[in-house]
Every structure is written in structure tokens, then in C-alpha cells.
Design a protein around this nucleic acid. Structure first.
Length: 578
RNA sequence: GUGCCUGUAGCUCAACCGGAUAGAGCUUCUGACUUCGGAUCAGAAGGUUGGGGGUUCGAAUCCCUCCAGGCACGCCA
């Protein structure tokens, strides 16, 4: 289904051609309702290129614009903008066709790609903490959107399950393990003795050496150490899975660092042979002498002592994803501190001849109310599991206040949906690069740009349909569209505004991937909820006469589906009641 | 020291590849309820876009410079 935007863009392009002008500028939705629904700055750009009067160029373009099938006659305004206004009847038609479309008008990508999305990536023997939220939530939302747009998405959890920390973990397991505590809370106990070992190793060279020996034994395949390692990985995974369940996150593959362990010697050998890497001060190093920004930033892929590091693993990972998984694109949803590292890894991939699209998608930090990195009172990282449980508890409290009549199972279910949704939405509704302040009251508020506000709009719609009776008994999540083709009539301005906004869903969703910004979709959904509420105030639905009644019910239905689908693309669920 | 990121209303954040009078929400103030779930809506107030230069028809956006905060810069991940 073609969007108004792309339809008008084609018409514009034709008009420019017919007027003998170069194709230029862009056609976007209007920045202000006074300027109609869509606008283009094409005349301004062309006029600049050709040294002519912008308004004069605009007039020439307008002469060739044939848009009478969708809108009013285009107007020239301001310095030379051309504004377009849609006719309500055309909007009504489009709205009706959206009703019958399972994809709500969103087109599949013209050239579907195979995309590996690398996000989350927790470390074994360390609990996931608040710092992991952004990677998980962002990565999952991007994966959902890419998948909806028709790409083949492989979600990969690159778990930190191999590396020097295991020397200490194994030493701690052998010397400091408290079996009872391990039974009680396995991961907490592992973290405890890992920290203690770490402290010991820092102050005591003998412990440090012992840890190193344990690591050497592990890497040499020592049976006892391998068993301990396996046990620690399994216990950690249980904890991760619990968090993933709370967050409704599902990976397609979980190729952690250990998965690549066997491949590392081959990787280094290959890079040496091909001349990409060289020996330097005993280590194997890749220099980027011809890349200005990396010229003084070499990348070590094998340490002087023969050990491998995370750069080695990441090169092996690129090999696997591009060489064996045949990915066209890899998205690394990883914090900004690793920017330099990924520049190096991507450059090494390029030198190996890979042409895939490799992206490092960075994001800002989560701050506490003091505007410093969010920590517990004792200065530790905030465990993610506890944070999510807290979200559920707080949501539960609000539900008790606002809607005590819900049944107990409903309360539990709704609290989960609202609490988790609030945390996810707080993250996704803002530009990923800026740091943001984590405020419970703000994200759980029923007012403003929050998940509960959007969920409430949806709940109101569902409530209307419960009252509307059996003949309207379908659900937005149903695969089957239970809606017969019907006429939509748009008379009130609130109806027109709502319908126009709904039609933009298909324009917004693909935009998210331009620069990996789910906040564009979040803001759009907020606007939808907003114009819906205005409509809801201004236009009675159930009490109105036919044909307005059916038409308004259809608008409600479509709004419900857009909210449902839109939030689903962000990984957020909606309750039926709240 | 070098490089990257960030700086927008009192607070939390938008503004898509340079577009029109920089938008929301919270807070404050003024209105609208025998409501389809008022958990809402309508309206008002609130700005030298960190400072200063520059590029042009036009700059929060691009360039230069300074300030503030964060991060990274050869054997941790």
C-alpha cells in the first residue's frame, strides 16, 4: 500500500521533470497544521542551484503538479514552500483500506537483508545491571521493527563467557565457595566470591599467580576446571533467562565468547599470513597507518604472552557472522565507550574483503536523580532483576489505587505489563544518544509521554468494544481481520485529524531504521493517543447515530490496532483492562 | 595532550538529510464532569537552543573557537 508521502513524492518528481527542473528537495509531513498535511522545499533547493527566485520556481512546479486525485490544489507559501492538503474523502478511503490490511499499510522492504542484531551481551559471573537495559531494549525493538519490515533478523546474545575473569572465578570456587549460599542464590554467591578473589588478587601476588594458573588449566582443557566453568555458565544463564522472561526477550542464537575459542588461533594466523597483522614488541598487532583517525591506534589481536583478547574474539565473530551466517548487515547495540574498538574491528573486516554493512549503534547512559551514573546507595550497579521487580511492585500499587476491582490474577498480569512497559518506554521514547535520568514517578505516570498513558488509551478503546456488543467482538491482535470493508465518513475535525494521523503509521515505521531511532515511533504513538483522546472527547461513539457510529467504531478499532502494533514493535504489551 | 559524544522552557525530553513563528509532557494558573474508564480534554504562562564568530534566501542542525560534563586513547572486556 502506498503512503500519501510516497505518492506525493512521485507526483512532485514528475512535476519537476515536466517543468524541466532537476529532482531535488524532499517531501515531508507538514511542520505545522497551518501548512496543510505535507510540504516540500524542492523549489528552494532548485532556485538556489539555478540562481532564480524560489517563489517563481515554486509557481512553475505547481503548474505541473497534478494532485487533484488526492488533495486540494497545492499552494506556494513563505519563502517558496509548496504545501499539500489531503481531501477528507481520500483520507477516509485510505483509512478504510488500512482496516482490511493486516500490516496496517506498512510495506515490506524492497530488498530484504539478513541482519544479525547483537545486543544484551551479559557477562557470566556478573549479574545484569541497569546498564544493560538500553542495549537489550533498543536492540530488541530494532530487531522487531526490522523483522516486521521484512528483513531476516538473527538476534544474537554475545555472552561474555570466556576470558581472564574465569581464572578468578575458578580460584574462588575452589577456595572460597559457600555451598549453602550457592543453593540459596547461585549467582549472588558466584559474584560474592569472584569479588573477594578479585580483591585478594589485587593485594596478593601469590593469589594472582594462582588465578593465572587456573586460567591456563581451563584453557588447556583441564577437566575439573572445565566442569566448574560449565557450572558457572549454567547458573548465570538461569539468572539471565529469568530477566529475559520478565522483559519478553528471545534470542535466535547465543554464541558467546567461548563459542569462538577454537577459532582464535586460525584468525590470528590468517591475519598474519594476509599481511593485515604483524609482529610488534612480541604481540600480534594490526596497524592502520593509512587511516588518519586510527593511525596512532593499533589493535592487538594476540598478546605478547600468546593469549588472545576481546579483539581477537570480535574478529572471529565477524568472520562467523559474515562468512557462515552470511549476514548482509550486523548491528552492534553496544555502549559508546567501545567506539574505537569497533572502528578497529570494522576496519579489519574491510581489509579482509568483507563488504557487509557493519554498524555500531551506541547509546547514552542512565543516570540517577543526582545526574550521575545510576547506582545503588552503596555505590554498586543496580541489578536489573531487582529493578524490574520493583517496576512491577510500583505498578501494582498504582493499580490498587486506581482500579481495586480487578481480580487478583488480572492485577498481577497488568502490573507486570505496565511496570515493564514503563521501563522500556522510558528508554525508547528518547533519543538514544542522550543520557537520561531514571525517574520512577515520571515513567509510571498516567499523564504525559509514558507507556501507561498509551496503554490507557488502548484500554479505553477496548472498553468501548466491550460495551458495543458481540457483533464487534474481535481483537486487534487477531491474525484474521474481522472487519468487513466499510465506508468511513469523516466530518468532524477531530475525526479527520485522527484518521490522518493513523494513515502516517506506514510512513513512520520505516523511518526508525534510518538512524536507529525508536523514539520516532514512540513519539508518533504518543501523538496518536493524543489525537484519539481529543476525538474521544469531541465525538461520542456508541451514542451517535448511524452511519457515524460504525464509522467511529472503525476509527477506534484502527487506533487500537495501531497502538497495539506500534507498542508491540517497541516490545511493549498492552492490557485489556488496567 | 589527541579524538568522539552530549549541552534546547524551572524540571524531563522532541525537532527526520539546513526550512516557515524551536515543539511536547511535568509543574503553575484558568476553564469543562448525572463521562463511552475525568487515569481525560480545552486554554494560558514559560526560550538569546552553553558563549562568541562564520557559511546563506534560511542554522538547534553545517564550519571555526571557547566553556561545561562524559567517554576513549598498545597487550582488561
Amino acid at each position: 500500500m502506498e503512503t500519501f508521502q510516497s505518492l506525493l513524492a512521485k507526483k512532485l518528481s514528475n512535476a519537476l521533470f515536466a517543468a524541466g527542473l532537476p529532482n531535488a528537495g524532499e517531501l515531508t509531513s507538514a511542520t505545522d497544521p497551518r501548512f496543510g498535511d505535507y510540504q516540500t522545499n524542492a523549489a528552494l533547493i532548485v532556485a538556489k542551484q539555478q540562481g532564480e527566485s524560489p517563489r517563481e520556481v515554486a509557481r512553475r512546479i505547481v503548474e505541473h503538479l497534478k494532485v487533484d486525485d488526492v488533495g486540494e490544489a497545492p499552494t506556494v507559501a513563505g519563502p517558496g514552500f509548496i504545501n499539500f492538503t489531503l481531501r477528507p474523502a481520500v483520507v477516509a478511503e485510505k483509512t478504510a483500506s488500512m482496516l482490511a490490511d493486516e500490516r496496517l499499510g506498512v510495506s515490506q522492504a524492497e530488498s530484504p537483508r539478513r541482519i544479525v542484531v547483537d545486543f544484551g551481551s551479559p557477562n557470566v559471573a556478573k549479574p545484569m545491571h541497569v546498564g544493560h537495559i538500553r542495549s537489550i531494549v533498543l536492540g530488541d525493538a530494532l530487531a522487531r521493527i526490522a523483522s516486521f519490515l521484512g528483513h531476516e533478523v538473527i538476534r544474537d546474545n554475545h555472552i561474555g563467557d570466556w576470558g581472564t575473569q574465569f581464572g578468578m572465578v575458578i580460584y574462588g570456587w575452589k577456595n572460597l565457595l559457600d555451598q549453602d549460599a550457592l543453593q540459596q542464590n547461585p549467582l549472588a554467591e558466584i559474584v560474592r566470591f569472584y569479588k573477594e578473589t578479585n580483591a585478594l588478587a589485587t593485594s596478593d601476588p601469590q593469589v594472582r599467580e594462582a588465578c593465572r594458573q587456573e586460567l591456563v588449566k581451563l584453557q588447556g582443557g583441564d577437566k575439573e576446571n572445565i566442569d566448574i566453568w560449565n557450572e558457572c555458565v549454567a547458573l548465570s544463564m538461569q539468572d539471565f533467562e529469568h530477566v529475559y522472561e520478565l522483559l519478553d526477550i528471545h534470542y535466535d542464537i547465543q554464541c558467546g565468547e567461548s563459542f569462538y575459542h577454537d577459532r582464535l588461533p586460525g584468525v590470528v594466523e590468517h591475519l598474519l599470513k594476509s599481511g593485515i597483522a604483524e609482529l610488534s614488541e612480541g604481540a600480534v598487532v594490526v596497524f592502520f597507518r593509512d587511516v588518519p583517525e586510527l593511525s596512532d591506534k593499533p589493535c592487538i589481536i594476540r598478546k605478547r604472552d600468546g593469549g588472545f583478547n576481546y579483539a581477537t574474539t570480535d574478529v572471529a565473530t565477524v568472520d562467523y557472522r559474515l562468512g557462515e551466517l552470511k549476514a548482509d548487515s550486523v548491528w552492534y547495540v553496544v555502549g559508546a565507550p567501545q567506539t574505537l574498538h569497533f572502528k578497529q574491528i570494522f576496519e579489519i573486516a574491510r581489509r579482509q574483503g568483507y563488504q557487509a554493512d557493519l554498524r555500531h549503534i551506541t547509546f547514552g547512559s542512565i543516570l540517577g536523580e543526582d545526574r550521575k551514573l545510576m547506582k545503588t546507595r552503596s555505590g554498586d550497579n543496580v541489578p536489573l532483576r531487582e529493578l524490574l521487580e520493583e517496576a512491577g511492585r510500583r505498578a501494582r500499587k498504582i493499580i490498587e489505587e486506581k482500579n481495586p476491582d480487578l481480580s487478583e490474577p488480572e492485577k498481577m498480569d497488568v502490573a507486570q505489563i505496565i511496570g515493564i512497559g514503563a521501563v522500556k518506554y522510558a528508554d525508547l521514547s528518547q533519543y538514544r544518544m542522550t543520557d537520561y535520568v531514571f525517574l520512577w514517578d515520571k515513567m509510571l505516570s498516567l499523564q504525559g509521554n509514558t507507556a501507561p498513558y498509551l496503554q490507557n488509551a488502548y484500554v479505553r478503546i477496548r472498553s468501548i468494544f466491550r460495551k458495543a456488543g458481540k457483533s464487534w467482538n474481535w481483537h486487534p491482535a487477531d491474525k484474521e481481520i474481522g472487519w468487513k470493508p466499510m465506508r468511513i465518513c469523516l466530518n468532524e475535525s477531530a475525526e479527520i485529524n485522527l484518521a490522518k494521523r493513523l494513515c502516517q503509521f506506514a510512513e513512520i515505521v520505516p523511518q526508525v531504521l534510518n538512524d536507529f531511532r525508536p523514539n520516532i515511533l514512540a513519539n508518533y504513538l504518543f501523538e496518536v493517543a493524543n489525537v484519539f483522546h481529543t476525538f474521544y472527547e469531541a465525538c461520542p461513539v456508541l451514542k451517535s447515530e448511524e452511519p457515524a457510529r460504525s464509522s467511529r467504531l472503525a476509527l477506534c478499532y484502527l487506533t487500537g490496532r495501531v497502538l497495539h502494533r506500534g507498542l508491540d514493535l517497541l516490545g511493549i504489551k498492552v492490557p485489556e483492562k488496567m
